[in-house]
Computed example of a mutant assay.
Amino acid sequence: MQTISRQPAPLLVVADHGANVLLVARSGSSCDVHGLDLSTRRLRPPVAVRAHHVLPSYDGALLTVVDDDGIAFVDLTADVPRVTWRELDPGIAVLDIARSPTSLAALVRITRRPGSDAGHAEMWRWDLPALMLRMRRPVDLDGLDGLALLASAALMTTTHDKHTDTYRVKGHGAAVRTVATKPTVLAGGETSALRIDGPTNTTVDIADGNLRVVFPPAVGAIGIRRHADALTVWEENGRLVVVDLTRRQAVTRLRTCL
């Protein structure tokens, strides 16, 4: 058995069933992917997957990645990883992408001309696991200060009012609100949140259930990850809170060494 702690893992990809995790580390133009069985703590030898973005969840067999040719679905159960299906093409740039067990959404810019930034933005959404395209519509991104994409294809956005120097937040699961401090929108699967940094603390307002997680002032990144009815909120210094969205309360608070 390999020693898990010696494997660098900037990204953890969690299986929908919760029994397996992929440890992903970039290696040049590819990613080294280790499979970890959480029940036996057995770590499989690494496999190389060509990708420049790997989604943070998968169905336990097919890993969704973004590469130079669009969106690829990689079968990790084969002896050698192989792409079983593709969506989009090199003329469509993926701006953001999000996944849940039942839905995949991608915010894209269609250029059709290599090396050109011109084009228009569209939202695409597929049903999972059938990979049936259910929606394709144009999206206006002009004037947005920030955005976060949910797997349902909903967008949480912020815009800046230069006259009042305030920020307008609009999005999934919450009424339109105005805040004085520049916020950061966060998304994890089907859940969105809003990070606001203040002089005495950093708050993360979770759209589902109107919940709030409060950290001491955070200078690094903050992320959220939803798995079933549990939402993990973490910040770069190692603080971690797990919220039960059904019970609407925190069930775990940890301080880890990252």
Rank of each mutant, 00 (worst) to 15 (best):
T202G: 02
A174L: 02
S152T: 14
G209K: 02
P199H: 12
G173N: 08
G220T: 05
D140E: 15
R177Q: 14
I206F: 01
L149Q: 09
P199R: 13
V179E: 12
V185N: 05
V176D: 15
P217M: 01
V169D: 13
V214S: 12
L144M: 11
V213W: 09
D197M: 00
A193N: 02
D142Q: 10
A221V: 05
G171L: 11
P216S: 04
P216L: 03
P217T: 03
T158C: 02
P138Y: 09
V213A: 04
T184I: 12
R195E: 11
T181Q: 05
G143N: 02
T184E: 15
V185H: 08
R137K: 07
V219Q: 10
A175D: 13
V185T: 14
T178Q: 05
L149N: 10
H172Q: 10
V213C: 05
K162G: 11
T158G: 02
H163A: 13
N210M: 00
T157S: 10
G188K: 06
H160T: 09
M135Q: 08
L194Y: 03
L194V: 13
L147D: 05
T202K: 02
D165I: 05
R168I: 10
V214D: 13
N201W: 10
E190T: 14
D140N: 15
G209N: 08
N201K: 10
A221P: 08
T191M: 01
A154L: 09
V185F: 10
N201P: 01
S152G: 13
T158A: 03
V169N: 11
S192Q: 08
I196S: 06
V214E: 15
T178F: 01
M132H: 14
V169R: 07
L141S: 09
K170Q: 15
S192L: 06
T157W: 08
G171I: 13
A174S: 00
A153S: 15
T181C: 01
H160Q: 04
M156S: 13
V219R: 10
R212P: 08
H163R: 11
H163Q: 11
A218W: 12
L141M: 14
H160F: 07
A174M: 03
T159L: 05
R177S: 14
T191G: 01
R168V: 12
P183N: 01
